[in-house]
Every structure is written in structure tokens, then in C-alpha cells.
Deep mutational scan, measured.
Amino acid sequence: SEIVKHAEEALERGEFVRIEHNGRVIEIRNEEALEELRRWVEK
């Protein structure tokens, strides 16, 4: 997914991403959060 790709690229640069999706906000700061995002987006 485009969202996950964006988050992965930001993590590689040492940045973090805040994503709003279906009214929820998730902050991607590490691999664990990235995995959570993947599960969340796939639903």
C-alpha cells in the first residue's frame, strides 16, 4: 500500500510519520509500529 511504503521510506531516513486513517491517528516511529500499520491497512 502507498501508506505503508511512505512510512517505510520515512523510517529508513530516520523520520517518523503520523498517519490519519478512518478517523484514527497512528504514529510510525519503529518497525513495531510499521507492522501495526500493515495489519491496520489490510483490514
Rank of each mutant, 00 (worst) to 15 (best):
E9K: 11
W40K: 03
I26T: 04
E31Q: 15
E36P: 00
R39S: 13
W40L: 10
I19D: 00
H6N: 10
W40Y: 07
I3F: 07
E42W: 08
L11S: 01
A33Y: 04
A7G: 02
A10Y: 06
K5G: 04
E2L: 13
V25T: 09
E8F: 11
G14I: 01
R39T: 11
W40F: 06
L34H: 00
E15D: 10
N30K: 02
E35C: 05
W40M: 08
E12V: 10
V4H: 03
E20V: 14
E8H: 10
V4D: 01
H21L: 15
R38T: 04
S1L: 13
R13A: 06
V25I: 13
E15R: 06
G23E: 03
E32V: 08
I19F: 10
H6Q: 14
V41Q: 04
E2T: 11
G23I: 00
N22A: 12
A10Q: 07
G14M: 04
E32F: 09
E2G: 09
H21K: 05
L37Y: 06
W40A: 07
E9L: 13
I19N: 00
K43C: 07
A10S: 08
R18I: 15
I26P: 00
E35M: 08
F16R: 05
I26Q: 02
H6L: 15
A33G: 13
L11R: 02
L11A: 01
I28Y: 01
L34A: 01
N22I: 06
V41N: 03
V4M: 11
L11Y: 08
E20S: 09
E8W: 12
F16D: 03
R29W: 12
K5Q: 09
E9T: 08
E20H: 11
S1H: 13
I26H: 08
K43Q: 14
R29M: 12
E9Y: 07
S1G: 10
L34W: 02
K43M: 14
R39A: 14
R24M: 13
E27I: 14
R39Y: 10
A7Q: 00
N22P: 01
R38P: 01
S1V: 12
A10W: 05
E32A: 13
E42T: 10
G14P: 01
E27R: 02
E35N: 10
E9C: 06
K5A: 09
R38N: 03
G23D: 05
I19L: 08
R38D: 02
I28C: 03
H21A: 08
L11T: 01
I3E: 03
V17M: 11
K5P: 02
E35Q: 09
K5C: 05
I19P: 00
V41R: 02
N22G: 10
L37F: 10
E12A: 15
E8A: 14
E8K: 15
V17I: 14
A33L: 09
I19C: 06
G23K: 02
L11M: 06
R39V: 10
E31H: 14
E31C: 11
E15F: 07
E42L: 11
E35S: 07
V41Y: 09
K5W: 05
A7D: 02
A10F: 06
V4G: 02
E9F: 06
A10V: 05
V41H: 04
K5L: 07
V17H: 05
E35D: 11
G14H: 06
V41C: 07
K5M: 07
N22E: 12
N30T: 13
W40Q: 05
F16W: 13
L11C: 04
E35P: 00
K5F: 06
A33K: 06
E36S: 07
I26L: 10
I3W: 12
I28A: 01
G23H: 07
A33H: 12
R29G: 08
E15P: 00
A33S: 13
R38I: 09
V41S: 04
E42G: 09
A10M: 11
L37A: 02
E15V: 09
R24Q: 10
E42V: 08
A33C: 07
G14Y: 03
R39H: 12
E35W: 06
L34K: 00
L34N: 00
V17C: 10
V25D: 03
K43N: 12
E31D: 09
A33R: 05
V17D: 02
E15T: 08
E35H: 07
V41F: 14
E20T: 11
R18G: 03
E2Y: 12
E15G: 08
L34E: 01
E32S: 09
R38C: 03
R18L: 13
E32W: 11
H21T: 07
V4Q: 02
E36Q: 11
A33N: 13
R29A: 11
F16T: 11
I28P: 00
F16V: 14
G23S: 03
W40R: 04
N22V: 06
H6P: 02
I3C: 08
R13Q: 05
G14F: 04
I26W: 15
I19W: 11
H6Y: 15
R38G: 03
N22S: 08
A33F: 05
R29D: 12
R13D: 02
G23C: 07
R13E: 03
K5Y: 04
N22F: 13
S1W: 15
N30I: 02
I3G: 03
R18F: 12
I28D: 00
G23V: 00
N22H: 13
V41G: 02
E27H: 10
E31K: 15
V17R: 02
R18Y: 11
W40P: 02
V4N: 02
E27S: 06
R38Y: 05
A7I: 09
E12M: 15
E31Y: 15
R39N: 13
R38M: 07
I26Y: 14
R38S: 04
R29T: 14
R39L: 13
V17T: 07
L34D: 01
E9Q: 13
H21R: 06
V4C: 04
E27K: 03
H6F: 15
E20G: 03
E32C: 06
R29L: 13
N22C: 10
E20D: 07
N30A: 04
E15L: 07
E42A: 12
E12G: 14
E12R: 15
R24F: 14
I3V: 11
E8I: 13
V41E: 03
V17L: 14
E27W: 14
F16M: 10
L37G: 00
V41A: 06
E36T: 08
F16P: 06
K43D: 12
L37H: 00
G23P: 00
E20A: 08
H21W: 15
R18P: 02
H21N: 05
S1C: 10
I28V: 12
A33E: 15
L37T: 00
I3R: 03
V25Y: 09
I3K: 12
R24G: 05
E12N: 14
K43P: 06
L11V: 05
E42N: 10
E20I: 14
N30H: 06
E27N: 06
K43R: 13
K5N: 06
L37Q: 00
E2W: 15
R24P: 00
V41W: 08
V4F: 10
A10T: 04
R39D: 10
V4Y: 09
E20N: 08
L11D: 01
V41L: 13
E20Q: 10
A7E: 01
E42I: 09
E36N: 07
E15A: 07
W40N: 03
E42M: 11
L11P: 01
E31W: 15
G14C: 06
E27G: 02
V17E: 03
R13S: 05
I26K: 01
E35L: 07
I3L: 15
I26N: 01
V17S: 05
L37I: 04
F16Y: 12
L34T: 00
G14L: 04
R38Q: 05
S1E: 12
I28W: 01
V4W: 11
N30M: 02
K5V: 06
N30W: 03
I26A: 01
E20R: 10
G23L: 02
E31L: 14
R39C: 10
K43V: 12
I19A: 04
E8V: 11
I3A: 07
E2R: 06
R29K: 12
N22R: 08
H21I: 15
E35R: 08
R18H: 08
I19S: 01
R18W: 13
E31N: 11
V25N: 04
V4T: 04
L34Y: 01
A7C: 08
G14T: 01
E15S: 09
I19M: 05
A33Q: 15
H6T: 11
E20K: 09
K5H: 07
E9M: 12
V4R: 02
E9H: 08
K43G: 13
E32Q: 12
E9P: 00
N22Y: 12
E20L: 12
H6I: 15
E35K: 07
R18E: 08
A7L: 05
E15H: 08
E31I: 14
H6C: 10
E36A: 11
E9N: 10
N22Q: 10
I3D: 04
I19Y: 08
L34F: 02
N22K: 11
E42Y: 11
E42D: 10
L37K: 00
L34P: 00
G14A: 04
E32M: 10
F16I: 14
S1Q: 14
E8S: 12
L37N: 00
H6D: 07
R24W: 14
W40D: 04
E27P: 03
